[in-house]
């Protein structure tokens, strides 16, 4: 394709091609400091004109690549950065076969990892990004990659996608870590945030998981903690994984091992500060 950007995030290398330079220029700026893959790329993403005549006329961006969803709706060119990000997510969700992929945020402290998972909108992405700015090392806000043989997490510190008011929580960070404001997207206003230098520098270290939390946000909800047993954890994590079934026996072995060895709890919180306090308490007691 006319314009190309190669990017390595943790163990995964992407090749992103585009009909236009603009989305790739935004990607390059957002991922400044990330390594460039030297050999083969695991996945190819194409940010291309939806139809050939849509290259110039009301440019409309289709999200395509090695793995595609037939009904993925095109986006306006102004949201080309989002299209590239969604394209990378799609490749991981549909094509990743080396690690058990859990839809979860992850952070590290004391050489061990905390996983935050649960339904979208529960706050796992925002919480993991916040923890990453407050003494924890950020490993990822969207996908946690669990090694099939060793049960250890591989960091996957992609840019954080901050939706609507969530960006306000990071207002004190330097402007150069943020991507452009993308308004009117299918998910509202989005701003991407580059993880900090520690997260990027440590993206190749493996981390054993030590605690799994299922946060749930509700303004009127009293803070609460409920332990999650191994069987329930197993059931919830199969639902949080996009490739559990595809990995067959290896996925089963990795997941049963995780569920038997790592404690888990569901936490309800009414404010961000409440959630951070709960995390600290549970981490100390793990």
């Amino acid at each position: 394709m006319k314009h190309v950007f190669r990017l390595k995030v943790g163990p995964v290398a992407f090749r992103i091609g585009s009909d236009w330079e603009a989305p790739l220029a935004q990607l390059r700026r957002l991922y400044a400091g990330y390594p460039t893959p030297e050999g083969i790329c695991d996945f190819t993403v194409r940010v291309e004109a939806d139809k050939p005549w849509r290259r110039r006329l009301r440019p409309s961006v289709a999200i395509r690549g090695d793995y595609v969803l037939p009904d993925a709706a095109p986006l306006p060119l102004a949201q080309g950065l989002l299209a590239a990000e969604m394209g990378m997510n799609l490749q991981m969700a549909l094509g990743q076969r080396r690690y058990l992929l859990l839809h979860a945020g992850a952070v590290e402290r004391d050489g061990q990892a905390l996983l935050l998972t649960g339904e979208s909108g529960a706050g796992k992405s925002t919480l993991s990004a916040l923890l990453g700015e407050r003494g924890w090392r950020f490993l990822g806000d969207e996908f946690a990659l669990l090694g099939l043989g060793d049960g250890e997490l591989r960091p996957f510190p992609r840019a954080v996608s901050l939706k609507n008011a969530a960006a306000d929580l990071f207002a004190d960070l330097p402007e150069e870590r943020f991507g452009p404001v993308l308004s009117g997207t299918p998910k509202g206003t989005i701003r991407h945030l580059r993880p900090n230098d520690a997260a990027i520098a440590g993206m190749h270290d493996r981390v054993p998981p030590a605690l799994i939390l299922f946060p749930r946000f509700g303004p009127e909800r009293p803070a609460a903690v409920r332990p999650v047993g191994a069987a329930e954890l197993f059931m919830r994590l199969t639902q949080a994984s996009t490739n559990y079934v595809a990995l067959a026996r290896t996925g089963f072995d990795a997941l049963t091992r995780l569920c038997r060895s790592v404690p888990a709890a569901a936490i309800d919180y009414g404010s961000t500060e409440e959630a951070l306090a709960l995390v600290d308490r549970l981490w100390a007691a793990r």
Binding site: A13, G39, I40, D42, R97, R98, V245, A246, L247, A248, T250
Partner: peptide
């Protein structure tokens, strides 16, 4: 090359499923 070999292993695992 090592990275290519790993990708081929992934593909073989996927095709077995």
């Amino acid at each position: 090359p090592r990275e290519v070999e790993r990708l081929m292993e992934d593909a073989r695992r996927a095709s077995e499923t």
